[in-house]
Amino acid sequence: MRTTYTWICIAFTVIAAASGDVLIALAMRRIGDLGDFRRKHGFLAVGARVLSESALFGGVFFMAMAFFSNLVGLSWADLSLMGPASAALTFATNAVGAKFFLHENVDKRRWIATVCVCVGVVLLTHT
């Protein structure tokens, strides 16, 4: 039964983390390179600019959800399963999110990499 709970927890973590990642990536894309921004406007301006992005707060909310879900999962399963499984599946979900929501160039090479990651996750679950 605990295995079922663990995988429900992993699924919830993946969806929340991918939503958070996409929203944070969207916010940071709007802001641009923080290094360049700091050189042009100073350190405080970077903080003000980052905090002015509403997408960032949505992203942080979903990341917080993923964090607590991960915490519950870690109390049920080993880090060597929970960590790679949730992170790798988040990677695959992110590739889809990045293509359709961020319009990133997710070419054939990146899709093949996604499949490799998913197979890797399947191997990770066979202990």
Binding site: D78, T114, V115, V117, V121, L124
Partner: peptide, 29 residues
């Protein structure tokens, strides 16, 4: 590595293979 050597969790050969495949896959991009 942290799981194996610090937390003393068991990381089987299959899990190692999975980790290697993940790193290979993501290294492609």
């Amino acid at each position: 590595l942290i799981s194996r050597f610090w937390l003393h969790e068991h990381v089987s050969l299959t899990r190692w293979a999975g980790i290697v495949l993940i790193v290979t896959g993501v290294g492609l991009v």
